[in-house]
């Protein structure tokens, strides 16, 4: 998932804060998919990614399936 879209699920333009949240989520998601990081990084990045997923979904910035972590 990358923040390519300019609107949320309701078709509203994304605010600068919303764009930043989505961008951060996208970066964490990419990072959490890596397999070459030490466990301390992988596990904590995953936790952080999940929390950002929550915020982005709740704010209707995206609706990404909960299963794909």
């Amino acid at each position: 998932m990358s923040p390519k879209t300019n609107t949320d699920l309701l078709g509203r333009p994304l605010t600068a804060d919303e764009r930043e949240l989505l961008d951060l989520y996208g970066r964490l998601r990419t990072l959490s998919a890596r397999t070459d990081l030490p466990p301390v990084a992988t596990a904590n990045v995953k936790q952080a990614m999940v929390l950002l997923w929550n915020a982005c979904n709740d704010l209707a910035l995206m609706y990404e399936e909960p299963g794909c972590d």
């Binding site: 929550n54 979904n57 909960p66 972590d69």
Partner: peptide, 11 residues
């Protein structure tokens, strides 16, 4: 529940 499920449950 998976990680995201649990985080959503909490939310």
């Amino acid at each position: 529940d998976g990680r995201k499920d649990w985080s959503w449950i909490t939310d």
